[in-house]
Design a protein around this nucleic acid. Structure first.
Length: 590
DNA sequence: TTAATGATGACGATAGCG
DNA sequence: CGCTATCGTCATCATTAA
């Protein structure tokens, strides 16, 4: 249901412009369940104000929370914002937990559905094995000891054990504590004690509330019937829009949609712009979207902007009317981008666009194998069908281009730079290796695409903006805004890689920026306290941009494509955490 | 001499679509 | 079912630095 037009589900106008209706989008929307439908199916904790109180109540009770706590919290906070409710319930439960008996929040670990999610436990299970531990009181002690050894506070560990039960795995306990910590920090906007976790980076500490919700729901379902996983997909199928043009792209005026309705608590400022790969494992975008205030993703393939494909989802609360592209418009075909290749491009290679630019490139072996295959049928007009098929398959897989007689080769870093919309030599110098250039570029934004989306900010902020850029990488957002002519007043850039920080810093100085660039090493150290300092120093942020790591989501990952809860990709929850803090603190810095 | 860094190539699965 | 695309990881070797 990634269909963009599902946003039209209600009629609240916030911008009464002409409504440019697109047939294809509309016809898609009718086949797609509306958000209300999904909410009713209790897949998500939507912020939608449901008509019936009992539904919300049941939803939380089905997740394993005690009814009286749920109703108490609902009474106090209303039922509009289920995310907030969940937080409150968790917090409340945590406070009460000392006097409570063992509560079962987690589904029965022996249930078959639970086993279905064991990819999670298998993949990041460390040395602690459940089988080795007898299910007894000593197990309780051992688990407690393990958690304390991992750096958690004893009361946190005890609370988690009480909440989840003795039989739950260490992983789940760690997750639970992580979520509780996250919620806690969210809850008190004042600086919390930041010495709460161990310094080790062994495992993702932040799991989603989603996991608990989904498992809780499945537990309920599985009790009456064990359904095969392919049946009733829970609305988790994505249905990526085809063509993947989001709310529209330049050069395709017919595709442009100028109006959408955002959920109430998603409306900015502050504006936010989140990016990740479009082709994720099932359910990932639903989770992302739900955390980001139920804003539906805008899926865009950058092949409509440049000569290379780049299928990405963007969740943002920016206006979508009156976008404009960066000029000059970049070349849209391979040969327009690289005219010299025409000389060697065979007529039987129909490619007009490159595939996604990734972090690694094809090997010389592949080039060699292709040359040998082609030479073997040099006596004929054209290679045989099987050879053509093999060569095209390899060329598409590795994004190879024709650079000589029977010779294909991967792109150079300079060429990738150009395709992605960065200035020439943006990633060159500063002691960065060629391999790392490929990696940094492969992880980056396509500047023209992002700039098109951000272009609406230009007239809104003629005096410049304050930007919080998480997971900045080589500064795709900064470059995009700069090329748009949006002055950058204060930029806080969070990026783990030192070479990337150097690249951004170097670009910042070369382009004679008037503002201030502050760079931070790690998102984890950007807590409420630090954020408050930064915001009071520069007067709040107008825009929060970030594309969190896709390592555990990307299709090319054969090893650890385990979804949003993977070590790197779970950093999405830090994006959410920080964005939520910025939103909550924004009124104080107007 | 060893240690750190860079470069290389082998390694399928998932999910959407017709 | 067949077809296609996919911001990647890891062990290992080569090279450079210490």
């Amino acid at each position: 249901m990634g269909d963009d037009s599902s946003l039209e589900s209600d009629n609240f106008d916030w911008n009464t412009d002409d409504e440019l209706e697109i047939e294809s989008f509309n016809s898609l929307s009718s086949t797609v369940p509306s958000r209300q439908t999904i909410t009713a199916a209790s897949v998500e904790a939507s912020s939608f104000a449901g008509p019936s109180n009992t539904k919300v109540l049941d939803h939380f009770i089905s997740m394993g929370f005690p009814g009286e706590v749920v109703s108490k919290v609902i009474q106090e906070y209303g039922e509009e914002d289920e995310d907030k409710l969940l937080e409150e319930i968790l917090t409340y439960s945590a406070l009460e937990s000392s006097s409570q008996q063992h509560q079962q929040v987690e589904p029965d670990p022996t249930s078959s559905e639970y086993a279905g999610s064991s990819w999670d436990d298998l993949s990041d299970g460390d040395s602690f094995s459940d089988e080795e531990m007898p299910k007894s009181v000593s197990r309780n002690d051992d688990t407690l000891l393990s958690l304390v050894n991992m750096g958690f506070k004893e009361e946190e560990a005890l609370m988690a054990i009480e909440r989840l039960g003795l039989d739950s795995s260490l992983d789940d306990l760690v997750d639970f504590i992580g979520v509780a910590q996250l919620v806690k920090e969210e809850d008190s906007l004042l600086p919390p004690e930041d010495k709460q976790q161990c310094s080790g980076h062994s495992k993702p500490r932040k799991r989603s509330l989603y996991e608990y919700e989904v498992l809780g729901k499945k537990k309920r379902k599985v009790s009456d019937k064990r359904t095969p996983c392919e049946e009733e997909d829970d609305g988790q199928t994505l249905n990526l829009p085809n063509p993947m043009m989001g709310f529209g792209v330049p050069n395709e005026p017919k595709s442009i949609i100028t109006h959408r309705t955002l959920p109430e608590n998603a409306i900015g400022p502050p504006y936010f712009y989140y990016e990740n790969v479009a082709l994720t494992p099932k359910g990932v975008w639903q989770t992302i979207s739900r955390f980001l205030y139920d804003v539906q993703p805008e899926y865009v393939d950058s092949k409509y902007f440049c000569a290379a494909a780049r299928k990405r989802g963007y969740v943002h609360n920016l206006p979508i009317a009156n976008r404009f592209p960066l000029l000059p418009l970049p070349p849209r075909t391979i040969l327009d981008a690289f005219p010299l290749l025409r000389k060697w491009w065979p007529s039987w290679d129909p490619r007009k666009n490159l595939n996604c630019l990734q972090t690694v490139h094809g090997s010389a072996q592949t080039t060699d194998r292709i040359r040998k295959k082609l030479e073997s049928c040099e006596e004929f007009e054209e290679p045989s069908e099987s050879v053509k098929k093999y060569v095209l398959e390899q060329c598409r897989k590795w994004n190879l281009v024709w650079v000589g007689k029977n010779k294909v080769a991967p792109l150079e870093p300079d060429e990738v730079e150009m395709l992605l919309g960065f200035p020439r030599n943006h990633t060159r110098g500063g002691g960065i290796s060629r391999t790392d250039r490929f990696k940094s570029l492969g992880n980056s934004f396509q500047v023209d695409t992002v700039a098109y989306h951000l272009s609406v900010l230009k007239e809104m902020y003629p005096n410049g903006i304050n930007l919080l850029s998480l997971f900045s990488g080589i500064g795709g957002a900064e470059v995009a805004l700069h090329r748009l002519g949006v002055p950058l007043n204060n930029v806080v850039s969070v990026e783990k890689s030192e070479v990337n920080r150097n690249i951004v810093r170097s670009w910042w100085e070369q382009t004679n920026q008037k503002g201030n660039l502050i760079d931070i090493d790690d998102v984890q150290q950007l807590d409420a306290e630090r954020l408050e300092q930064l915001m009071s120093a520069c007067g709040g942020f107008d825009l929060v941009v970030g594309g969190s790591p896709c390592n555990n989501l990307a299709g090319s990952n054969r090893v650890s494509r385990i979804g949003l809860e993977g070590t790197e990709s779970a950093l999405f929850y830090d994006y959410f955490r920080i964005l939520d803090l910025v939103k909550a603190m924004a009124p104080r810095f107007q």
